[in-house]
Amino acid sequence: MSDGATIALTAMLVATACGLLGPFLVLRGQALLSDAVSHAVLPGIVAVFLLFGTRASVPVILGATAFAAICVLGIDAFRNSGLVRADAAIGLVFPTLFALGVIGITSFASGAHIDLDATIYGEIAFTPFRTVDLFGVEVARAIPIVGTVAAVNLALVVALWKELKGTSFDPEFSRTTGFSPAIVSRVLVLAVAVTAVVSFESVGAILVVTLLIVPAAAARMLTDRLALTVAATVAIGWVSALGGYGSAVALDASIAGAMGMVATGCFALALLAAPRYGVLARLAQRRRRRRRVAELLDRAGAA
């Protein structure tokens, strides 16, 4: 596989993994959890390095996931106190965990070249160079890893489809029918954390955060069906991955950045030009309504 194809395929797999979960985050008002988790995992990565002296994938992913879970549970604890709103709870917890990580780096690991961007959080341009032998074929390590996460997310969303739909739409009713919104919420957020952590390592944090939020936001503008929302989110993610890779090569710019830009471009397009809910469509609707009312009034006046 060529380097370009590897990068594009990795990005598409990340877009799939994120696109399956993103719509639920956006619909539940938890979009910024992804950003929170992306910063909160730092101390986990640092701790693994300090304790075991390794930056190997599996222990780092485990350490990071542990801190992602701490972050999510911490946010829940503040929110459940009823004294701190959800947004403030997020903003209290993740910078604190990030601060712990920074302290860990500067005081204990400064000689170890843990640098915040590429080494820890991954850089998608490097994916073709880190390979693994899979059934005798040499493939980029990121592909089986991210592919597994995407498959797990797909299984999760299919299996929990009605639970996710029900508890997101009407949590109170769901409770009376025996589906605890808290449990469903924990499972979803944990899946987001694992997805984020695993994908960071391959493609970098900002691309994951972008792919969790932006395509889902764009898809919200396009459709009123949940299944279509998820499908559109994944599709927009793929467009971002391919288009982003192409433009990054053309401009010789950051691949992750370019993919984020294409995703944002898709969102802007959807916000403005979506068929029913886009800004332009609404303006047109309003103008048509006004004209009709004016006509009716005219006719009434003439009669």
Binding site: V214, R220, M221, A258, G260, A263, T264
Partner: peptide, 25 residues
């Protein structure tokens, strides 16, 4: 049509991506 957190998230991701592209450029 979009909640405040989504709006914040989109701007965060979009601007940061733009920043990265500009810096690498």
């Amino acid at each position: 049509r979009l909640r405040p957190d989504t709006a914040i998230g989109v701007v965060l991701a979009g601007f940061f991506s733009l920043g990265i592209v500009m810096l690498t450029y």
